[in-house]
Amino acid sequence: MKKIFISIIFLCTISFPQENNSSAINLFSPINTKKFADYLFCQHDYLRAIEEYNRYLLGTSSDSIKFRIAIAYSKMGDYKQSIDEFMEVPEKSQLSPLAKLEIMKSLFQSGNFNELRNYFNLKISNNNFNEKKEAKSLYNFSFLFTNDSLPTEHNFYNAFHSDDLNKIKKFYNWKKDPPEKKSLTAGILSAIIPGAGKIYTNQFWDGLWAFITSVGFTYLSYDNFHAGHYFRGWLFGGLAVGFYAGNVYGSAASAQIYNAKIHFDFVNDLKDFLESHNYFIPVINFCK
């Protein structure tokens, strides 16, 4: 009888996990909904994760879940919604400081630099806030993306960690005095010596070619008029004028293209730096 009793207990211990897994059987129970939402979140299927988290929140309240929903919106690039969701994280919550930093990040990513600065001044700079340095880093960094006057060097640098200072100084100096080429200078140079404007904008071979064609056609025009071949004289003269005018205009345009390129590269460098530093926000791994 004793053996039978032990056997029953043994069999029941095997069967109970199945029954206790009734939560696993009811796929839509809150606990299973959350489990599934976490899985979707970690699979980067953010839209579905949001749906599942919202379903879970119907029966309960959780700051951590609200925070994840906001992160999911941010990851999807829906910054407006993401900010609204981060705002839902209560002030007293442990996640509140991080939510504020994330709001700044979303404002940054959506290009609302003025709103970001207002938010920083209103909610962070005058308050007792442990992550003030991180927030100040992002605040200062925003000046590198706009044409607003930069803070003083000391004020700018002191927000960043010493490890990054060399890179930050490089960015600051570039922004303060960008190595741009002037369109007017390029145009005038090419008007005086065909092709010189192109060489000024680092287009050496284009400049040389412009010089050869302009001078070559002018010479041919002169030579044909001199020899009494008026059709060819006008033809080469027309080509010379065309090449000359095109070269002057092209040099001015080339300076603009050069400037656009260096600005594009600069912004890309800034973005790479920010991405590698997660916008100065501590990283939380929800998917351990």
Partner: peptide
């Protein structure tokens, strides 16, 4: 006979639990 009955009951219990889980997956 009593032992056999108890064994059959437990076996049935286990199978039923398994089928129940399967049933939910089929429904899903």
């Amino acid at each position: 006979k009593a032992k056999v009955n108890i064994f059959i009951f437990c076996l049935f219990f286990l199978t039923e639990a398994n089928l129940n889980a399967q049933n939910y997956l089929t429904k899903q």
